[in-house]
Design a protein around this nucleic acid. Structure first.
Lengths: 133, 133
DNA sequence: GGCGTATATTACGTTAACGTCAACGTAAGG
DNA sequence: CCTTACGTTGACGTTAACGTAATATACGCC
């Protein structure tokens, strides 16, 4: 059995970045703008499972075309307590806005997929037609 | 009945841009990079229904987080004939890649929506709890 | 025919999200 | 002890997607 204290899964910067297919520069950049804040051993960054999750969420946001600031907003929603009562209502608003945006995206993707299917059919048609000569 | 020749729906740059909530600079930029090519009357741009459609597709792409280059690729897929036989197969590949990406997005959105629901529930909870004091 | 409004071109400015390079520290292995 | 690999901090460079003047032309109208 591994030592409980030292075994809490931790990652070096390169390991973490390799796992997600980003450069170390990217991880450091996210730290610069306060999206990640790994602990340190001396100078060296040590990423926890929580840091890993945050990175995962950031990258998910990117796939959806969100800015890093957008992602920060969303990720901060998950954190309890960090939200004082005054802001909860505006936070709920923000959440609903995000949901609207996402539903719009769902719609867009549906349409785009339809279009792509058509386009593919056209291509295959063209290949058939021209393949016969 | 309006004159068939002159009545084919056409738009001025400001009208078209207002309709889609973008600036004229944006439309001109899209023209600079070859995404739009409206006809002209003298110097003045005249947008056709086809131009309008292209703009609509570009903006849909943007909502999905695509780059303008990505959108160009996709939009060009719709154009028949412009694709020579040699490229049809690679085009089909591109289409499938796009589809994969979109399915990934669908997945991401589903997860994000779930998360947002949780976050909202937390907020509402917090409001209730604190509202009682 | 002067005024306002729309349009044009040219060109420099801006922001986000990193890339890239330099210069250096440190720990492990041969 | 030397090399190799991985880590650090600046700091300037780059790309995409426009913003923002500045300046000039053209149109409708009272």
């Amino acid at each position: 059995m591994t030592n409980i204290v030292t075994s809490a899964t931790k990652y070096s910067i390169t390991d973490l970045c390799k796992e997600f297919g980003v450069t170390t520069r990217t991880a450091r950049h996210y730290e610069d703008i306060g999206l990640l804040s790994p602990s340190r051993r001396g100078q060296t960054r040590i990423y926890s499972a929580a840091d890993r999750t945050r990175l995962r969420l950031i990258l998910r946001g990117k796939r959806l075309g969100l800015s890093l600031e957008d992602s920060r907003q969303i990720i901060d929603m998950y954190e309890p307590g960090k939200t004082n009562i005054d802001q909860l209502n505006s936070l709920i608003d923000a959440i609903r806005q995000q949901r609207d945006k996402l539903n719009q995206q769902l719609d867009d993707i549906g349409n785009l997929l339809k279009d792509l299917n058509k386009a593919e059919a056209n291509c295959i048609d063209a290949l058939k037609t021209n393949g016969d000569k």
